[in-house]
Write a protein that binds this DNA or RNA. Structure first.
Lengths: 220, 220
DNA sequence: GTCTATAACATGATAGAC
DNA sequence: GTCTATCATGTTATAGAC
């Protein structure tokens, strides 16, 4: 499939692109800049990445892999839901810390329902399902009732998307505002988890589930 | 400022563009197509609209004006919160009914924090503030406690954005899925309004408000 | 000052030679 | 696998018509 040399060229193009995106932003970086920086031709860059957006997708995959790696360490350490969930968000922020300029390109692609790297598209499916699974694992602890885990995972993942959108807009040092927002939202959310898990909440859960199912938002 | 003739040319360009966007989608329509369809030159099109996105912004403004007009009729007719809010959403869906292909372009621009027509940008401010005000009016009825109106308006407007995103993705006939989603979400949401308005919920309201304020999400 | 047309530019993407 | 040449299209500059 791909030779050693091709592998290296691909990596060089990816690294150059990400570094340029970080420094100057997604729009400001041209594919010609990327090719020149990687000391290859425009055609070669397009040989390895079918579009500029595809490079962002590769970044997205890298972030996910790193997040999973570090999340698993946290999961092994603690069974406290709050800690686990909070860690998942903070981890994400740590990983993309220096990438605000890059995230603009990501957010745009991801929000575009027609884009091949949209959150809804099939090419991002692996990362999307993996991310949801990560939240599913985070809430899979004795403290959280079985019945609310699936719903909770989807809700937390949706929040994760919203946080990334907020981050692109947050210019506070060290993403302080976004981090504060994570804390505030979790402080609001976490107390209702036991309530939702109680038998009294069964009709409400059913109502929620029916709504999400009808909307096609439930994984099958 | 602008002459009669210029006015007509501008309108012709806008109508042509929207009609082409509707038929073929935003990306598939070139500015050259628009100019040709409006029987004018490319330069003229750019004289009247500084960018392709700006045309979408003009559409956005048209939708808002129509929505306000029809909302005011509903507000005059009923003081029931549920009905008023539901009408605001259904109205929106009615107005953009035939524009799914167009909305793709809008969503992308709106989500891009750097775009000049982003939800966050100043050029969309008038429409954004107007839309939030519309929700503020919808919930300004005796049944809804003063204390929850501002919060409620922001929450409902956020939901409105999410619904538009969902709509771009909903290919069911007559946007049935999106309409169902509106109903389901409101059925879930409306019962908690009186609870949130009660004095017991004061600490919760304060917590929420503090969080939104720290995040800069509260209009000042 | 208001408007229109033409040419040119920058850049994402593709085709085909090697 | 890689490169060069070329295309398509969003955007800008500019000249000038009314």
């Amino acid at each position: 499939m791909s030779t050693e040399r091709g592998e290296r060229t691909r990596a060089r193009i990816l690294d150059t692109a990400l570094s340029l995106f970080r420094k100057h932003g997604f729009d400001e970086t041209t594919m010609r800049d990327v090719a020149a920086g990687a000391e290859t031709s425009l055609g070669a860059a397009y040989y390895y990445f079918e579009s500029k957006e595809a490079i962002v997708l590769a970044y997205y995959e890298k972030v996910y892999a790193e997040r999973r790696r570090r999340a698993e360490q946290v999961f092994a350490r603690t069974a406290d839901v709050s800690e686990r969930v909070r860690a998942l968000y903070q981890l994400h922020l740590d990983i993309v810390r220096r990438d605000r300029k890059l995230l603009g390109g990501l957010v745009r692609s991801v929000a575009d329902p027609l884009s091949s790297v949209s959150v809804f598209s099939s090419s991002t499916r692996e990362v999307r399902d993996g991310s949801i699974a990560l939240f599913r694992e985070a809430v899979s602890v004795p403290d959280v009732a079985e019945e609310v885990r699936d719903l909770g995972a989807i809700a937390l993942w949706t929040l994760d998307l919203a946080l990334m959108l907020y981050l692109t807009w947050d210019d506070s040092p060290r993403q302080a505002r976004t981090r504060q927002l994570v804390d505030d939202v979790l402080d609001l959310l976490m107390p209702i988890v036991p309530l939702l898990g109680s038998p009294f909440a069964a009709p409400l859960r059913a109502q929620l589930e029916r709504a999400l199912d009808r909307a096609g938002l439930l994984p099958r």
